[in-house]
Design a protein around this nucleic acid. Structure first.
Length: 287
DNA sequence: CACTTGACCTGTCCGC
DNA sequence: TGCGGACAGGTCAAGT
């Protein structure tokens, strides 16, 4: 389930692979996922200028004043190959997930003029692609709901502290709210809260400034380490080369219910549902 | 406005 | 062997 690190890895990979390439053909294989029409002439013969990230969305800026916005949601993949039919690791090669391209989960295909391809795969069909004028990206309904980015030097710590202290809901729900801090999803919320020794259910307005500062440091640390490790491939995540990330083995609490807390404090990792989502924590060291 | 809940999807896994 | 149900979780819409 791509969160900030995974999307950043995809963006970095795309900047290496497809900048300055010319789109020769676009094939939509799923109307629900790909809101672009195959007949959309705006894409054809446009050249990729640069790729950037807004929250968990990928933005591909073209040289014709248009931009493609892509959201991978839980199971989306963007895989680049220099020729069709090439195999890749996929997400679940040992299960039903295919290892060839295109496959039954391929929802859209970008064909470049040099014969290379970019495949958009999405098992669960929650992801989407849309085309908007570049100057309208900021007005897009999804983009408008994206709050401050914790990896940006412009992130205002004081504003974050204020927002957290104005919420009485559990801190887990606060930091997974994209409007308050963007890019944090279930995996990294759980990991950062463990690192900061704060319970997911701890109300935002009951946290001290010191607690919140510590949490912010933990969030940044976890995100940075995950990017360095190539992301977390818990389910289907792969980078643009179709390779899995290595952060799964560094996870301390996510999907570790019943395990001993890595702090060796005698605590056993518990699982608790918050708003329909599984949270993981150590009842011994997290307060 | 703050907050909660269910819907969207397809697949895996587990118990019977 | 099949089958029902729980589970996975990013976002959105509708509800209190």
């Amino acid at each position: 389930m791509p969160e900030l690190p995974e999307v950043q890895i995809v963006v970095d990979g795309l900047n290496q692979k497809i900048t300055r390439k010319t789109i020769g053909r676009f094939v939509s294989r799923d109307i629900k996922v790909s809101k672009l029409s195959p007949a959309d002439k705006k894409l054809i013969r446009s050249k990729v200028q640069k790729i950037r990230r807004i929250g968990k969305a990928v933005i591909i800026d073209l040289d014709n004043q248009y931009s493609i916005i892509i959201h991978l949601k839980m199971t989306g993949q963007l895989v680049f190959v220099d020729r069709q039919g090439k195999r890749y690791e996929g997400g679940h090669p040992e299960k039903s997930y295919q290892t060839d391209l295109p496959n039954k989960h391929t929802r859209a295909v970008f064909e470049f003029s040099d014969g290379t391809h970019l495949f958009f795969n999405d098992l669960r069909r929650f992801g989407w692609i849309k085309l908007v004028p570049t100057k309208e990206v900021e007005n897009d309904s999804f983009v408008k709901a994206v709050g401050p980015d914790p990896t940006s030097p412009d992130f205002k710590e004081n504003e974050f502290i204020e927002k957290v202290q104005s919420r009485k809901i559990g801190i887990y729900s606060v930091i997974t709210n994209q409007k308050i801090i963007s890019g944090v999803g279930n995996i990294y919320a759980n990991e950062a809260l463990w690192l900061a020794k704060i319970l997911p259910t701890h109300p935002g307005n009951k946290l001290s400034i010191k607690d919140i500062n510590g949490l912010l440091v933990s969030i940044k640390q976890v995100l940075t380490q995950a990017i360095r490790a190539g992301g977390t491939s818990y389910s289907t995540f792969v980078n643009v080369d179709g390779k899995k990330g290595d952060f799964l083995k560094f996870l301390k609490v996510y999907q570790h219910e019943g395990d001993a807390c890595p702090r060796r404090d005698g605590g056993i990792i518990q699982r608790k549902k918050i708003g329909g989502r599984s949270t993981f924590f150590c009842p011994k060291c997290q307060k």
